[in-house]
Design a protein around this nucleic acid. Structure first.
Lengths: 236, 236
DNA sequence: GTCTATATGGTGATAGAC
DNA sequence: GTCTATCACCATATAGAC
């Protein structure tokens, strides 16, 4: 699926997605977008009605994808742990298949105008509630031990959502490995202990999965005192 | 500490912080900021050199606060669990004391110009490495059972960092409760089991901590199909 | 469908009076 | 330290030729 096989409108959306992710929606101009596509800015308006329309399409398309995945996951037969695992895996599948669009979905929705903004927030709220429902059921059955279901839901989703910031499609970690490892950590925690680890298909993930993000460092680099930076900021 | 006790420069920074958080840096104009303060835009330049200087000050001041807290936490005497708890608590203390500045710190740094951008990313990298070091030590001693230390670090920090999006200073949850509950969930997971829960001072947090964010819903609202939204976006 | 030209208004920042 | 006036530029979007 190269760029050339896409319709012009889809090319515009794809390129805009990449720019919105890296520079932010407000800091991306139609000239930037046109230049990236080898066009003049005015030509874009033969394909789209406005800059915001592009954002709307990205946000609601992604909302739709996250929702469809969750609806499938909720059909999973089994206990709450298995349902939650399926929901986590579905969320991460969407996120790793479309990391840039997911980032825009999560970070740029505030620039939607009404009534799109309200509709978007309602959808997100519903989505969170479905996750919370799974946690609630697991808590009621004694399967989970969660003190605050709302916080657990938000913690869980924020852990998953940040994946777009470090996931590399061609990195050493496959979506499956990410899904398994994250599921296990969220369900069973960091502290060692004899808990069930039904989600874990591969615990022998090579510990050296660095490279993607970090310079492998055995010892953390010493602090370069942040106060130094403050001093370097130009005063008036 | 009312606004009127602050210097004009601090008033500007405080108001800018709120605007940058809610609208984003790029979408906030100097005229917006001036209007909020009851000034003309030109008057701002008697106190600051540029719009970006405000962002620089916020970002590096917060980097400094997060760092100083972590350095204190690392002095904690005890095992890795206790050290990690102290680091989590310190991080959340900074975050809950200055939620708006924390949000700007996390979401708007990309608008820094060089060399500030590179310096900022280096500091953030160092910070993550110090967290990772704690996890690494706990893993080595057998105290933790983490398959991927990098992912654990990123998962942990992303869970904590999203708190700014839902924390309400005058909500029902105190910073202490948030810290205890989050620590427990991250360390011990969601699944029930006989794991140590040393961090938990209060498991009887009222489950109805809603209100802040959610309309209390016993059952999640039915999906309002996101596809409907897609249709409503204006086509060309 | 893409171009040039342009309308209309907002942007960060400065000069200089008070 | 705040104001008015202004600069030089960039923003989104449209009109109309090709």
């Amino acid at each position: 699926m190269t760029t050339s096989t896409l319709s012009r409108k889809d090319q515009i959306e794809q390129t805009a997605t990449a720019l919105f992710k890296s520079r932010g929606y407000a800091a991306t101009s139609m000239r930037d977008l046109a230049t990236e596509l080898g066009l003049e800015a005015a030509s874009l308006y033969s394909h789209i009605k406005s800059k915001e329309e592009i954002l709307q399409r990205i946000c609601f398309r992604m909302a739709n994808e996250f929702f469809e995945g969750l609806m499938q996951a909720e059909k999973t037969i089994g206990n709450s742990t298995q349902k939650l695992e399926a929901a986590i895996k579905s969320h991460l599948t969407v996120l790793t298949k479309q990391p840039a669009a997911s980032a825009v979905f999560q970070n740029e929705w505030k620039h939607l105008s009404e009534p799109f903004l309200s509709n978007f927030l309602k959808l997100r709220h519903d989505y969170e509630n479905h996750f919370r429902q799974i946690i609630q059921e697991g808590n009621a059955s004694g399967e989970f031990a969660v003190a605050d279901e709302k916080m657990a839901t938000l913690m869980l989703l924020s852990s998953l959502n940040f994946v777009h910031a470090w996931y590399k499609p061609y990195g050493k970690l496959s979506p499956q490995q990410i899904s398994d490892t994250l599921s296990n950590m969220l369900l069973n925690g960091i502290v060692s202990g004899g808990k069930s680890q039904t989600a874990v298909r591969d615990l022998s993930i090579p510990n050296q999965s660095d490279g993607d993000v970090y310079i492998p460092a055995q010892k953390p680099a010493g602090f370069k005192n942040p106060k130094e930076q403050l001093k370097n900021i130009h005063q008036n």
